[in-house]
Amino acid sequence: MKPASTVIRQLFVAVLVAGLLGCAGAGQTTGEFVDDSSITTKVKTKLFNDPATSGWQISVRTDGGVVYLTGVVASATEKARAGELARSVAGVKSVRNELTVK
């Protein structure tokens, strides 16, 4: 009989793997989902760290390497800068800059 800690560890790993597999979107493999999530995180980080962009106002979604930027920004310059930052992330195939200037 296995010790309880080993059984719990195996159960935890099984649940974690099932969760990752379940997170993949329709038509996406787990690897593609992880890559898209990584791209989204890197883009958001760049937006937060850049003084010219308001990271809180910009939503980022990535699907198949295509980054979608949505939200409201203060100027055309900020919109353009957000697009530049998104394009600079490794793995980005294209950027759909749908930001609204108010």
Rank of each mutant, 00 (worst) to 15 (best):
N97Y: 07
L16I: 11
T77Y: 15
K2Q: 09
G55E: 11
T45D: 01
K42W: 08
V72E: 10
L16T: 12
A26F: 12
A26Q: 10
D35W: 07
K102Y: 07
A74V: 03
E78V: 08
P51C: 05
G65W: 01
S59V: 03
K2S: 12
V66G: 00
R61A: 12
A24Y: 07
G71R: 13
V15P: 00
A26T: 12
F33I: 00
Q28S: 12
K93D: 04
T100L: 12
Q28P: 02
V72Y: 10
A80T: 13
T29I: 01
P3Q: 12
A76H: 07
P3S: 13
K102M: 07
F33A: 12
A52V: 07
G55M: 13
D50Q: 11
V7F: 09
T41V: 13
V92Y: 06
S5N: 15
E78H: 11
L99T: 03
A24Q: 10
K93T: 11
T62F: 11
K102C: 02
Q10H: 11
Q10S: 13
V13G: 01
L11F: 14
T41F: 10
T40L: 02
V17K: 05
C23P: 01
I39F: 01
E98W: 08
K46N: 08
A52S: 15
V73W: 04
S75H: 12
T41D: 11
V92F: 08
K102A: 12
T40S: 08
K42L: 03
S94I: 00
T70M: 10
T40C: 02
Q10V: 06
V34R: 06
K93N: 09
A82Y: 03
G27D: 06
F12S: 14
T62G: 02
R81V: 15
L20K: 04
V7E: 13
R9W: 10
D35H: 11
A76I: 01
N49W: 15
K44Y: 06
G65Y: 00
V17F: 13
S94L: 01
S88W: 07
Q28L: 12
V60N: 06
I39K: 07
A86Y: 01
V101D: 05
